[in-house]
C-alpha cells in the first residue's frame, strides 16, 4: 500500500473582500496525482506560491481537498473520525523552530505528542529517549529549548514528531532559517531517520543540495506537478528548472557551464565526488 496517495486533488481558496463578498477563487492545487511508497525519501521543489506547502498540508489533514481524494496509509483524510489517526501516521515539521516548541525542557517537549495520544507514562519516557537519540539530541534532554541553537531546536521538533511513531514525516522548509552548521545537522538527522528507522520522508526545500540523495523529486508549478523523476533526471534539465524559478546544486551548475564551453562532461552530475571523477576520466582519456 502507498503511504501517501493523492488522486485528482484540487484545492481552491475563496478570496473575499472586507465585507465578506466573494472576490474570486484561487486554485492552489490543480488535479495533483502523486504516490509515495513506504520508506521513500521524497523531495518537493517549487517556487514561492507554486502550491507545495498547500500540498504538504493535505498530507496530515490540516487542509481537506476541495475535489479529489488524499489517502494516508490507506485512510481518506476527508473522513472526520480518521483525522487523529492520520496526524499520528504523518507528522509535520515547519520552518520556524520557535513556533513549534512548547515545553520548558527538551524532554517534556518531545513527550508532548505521545502524552496527548494517551501513551502510558513508562512508554512515553522510552519514546522520548529513543527519539532524542535518533536526532542526536539525547545529551540535551534536560536543557531549556531557548538555550539551544536553531539547528538543535529544529532537531528537537523532529524528535517531537518521531515520538509519536509516525510512518511518514513531512518537513516544510525545515532549514530555511538555519546557519550552514544547523542545516547540515538537520539534513543528517533526516537522512538517518530514513536510512536507519525507515521512516518515509517528504522534504520541501529551496536548497537543491539537500535533496541529491532523494529517491524521487516532484517539482510543482502553478498547483500542478510540472516535473518528476530521480534527482539526476531532474537536475539534468538546468534550463527547464531555471524557467520554473529554481536552481540546481552548484556542482551541477558548474558542470553544466563547463559543458557549454565544450568540455565533454555527462549530464546530471550531483556530487563533488562525481565531478572530480568525471574530470579525472577526461584527463586520463587524453593521455
Amino acid at each position: 500500500m502507498k503511504i501517501v496517495k493523492t488522486k485528482d486533488l484540487v484545492f481552491e481558496y475563496i478570496r473575499r473582500d472586507e465585507e465578506g463578498n466573494v472576490e474570486g477563487i484561487t486554485t492552489a492545487l490543480d488535479h495533483v496525482d502523486l504516490e509515495v511508497n513506504p520508506g521513500d525519501f521524497i523531495a518537493i521543489l517549487g517556487h514561492n506560491g507554486s502550491g507545495k506547502s498547500t500540498l504538504a498540508k493535505h498530507f496530515n489533514a490540516i487542509l481537506m481537498p476541495t475535489e479529489g481524494t488524499v489517502r494516508v496509509d490507506g485512510m481518506d483524510t476527508g473522513e472526520q473520525e480518521k483525522v487523529w489517526d492520520i496526524r499520528q501516521r504523518a507528522g509535520m515539521v515547519f520552518q520556524n523552530p520557535d513556533n513549534q516548541i512548547i515545553g520548558q525542557v527538551v524532554e517534556e517537549d518531545v513527550g508532548f505528542g505521545p502524552e496527548n495520544m494517551g501513551v502510558p507514562t513508562k512508554e512515553i519516557w522510552e519514546r522520548v529517549e529513543e527519539s532524542l537519540r535518533a536526532v542526536g539530541m539525547y545529551e540535551y534532554r534536560k536543557y531549556a529549548p531557548n538555550k539551544l541553537s536553531g539547528g538543535q531546536k529544529q532537531r528537537v521538533s523532529i524528535a517531537g514528531v518521531l515520538a509519536m511513531h509516525p510512518k511518514c514525516i513531512v518537513l516544510d522548509e525545515p532549514t530555511a532559517m538555519l546557519d550552514p552548521g544547523g542545516r547540515r545537522e538537520v539534513i543528517r538527522a533526516v537522512r538517518a531517520l530514513n536510512d536507519v528507522e525507515k521512516v518515509t520522508v517528504i522534504l520541501i526545500t529551496h536548497y537543491m543540495e539537500e535533496i541529491i540523495h532523494a529517491d524521487k523529486v516532484f517539482v510543482m508549478d502553478g498547483g500542478k506537478i510540472a516535473m518528476q523523476g530521480t534527482p539526476r533526471e531532474i537536475f539534468s534539465r538546468v534550463e527547464k528548472l531555471k524557467e520554473l524559478r529554481l536552481d540546481v546544486p552548484k556542482v551541477t551548475l558548474l558542470a553544466h557551464e563547463l559543458k557549454k564551453e565544450g568540455v565533454p562532461l555527462p549530464d546530471g552530475i550531483l556530487t563533488v565526488k562525481e565531478f572530480v571523477e568525471a574530470l579525472d576520466r577526461l584527463r586520463s582519456g587524453r593521455r
Binding site: 517556487h47 514561492n48 522548509e173 530555511a176 532559517m177 529551496h206 537543491m208 524559478r245 529554481l246 536552481d247
Partner: peptide, 10 residues
C-alpha cells in the same frame, strides 16, 4: 537575511 525562505530565482 533578506533571502530566507525565498525560491532560488527570488
Amino acid at each position: 537575511e533578506p533571502t530566507a525562505g525565498l525560491d532560488p530565482k527570488g
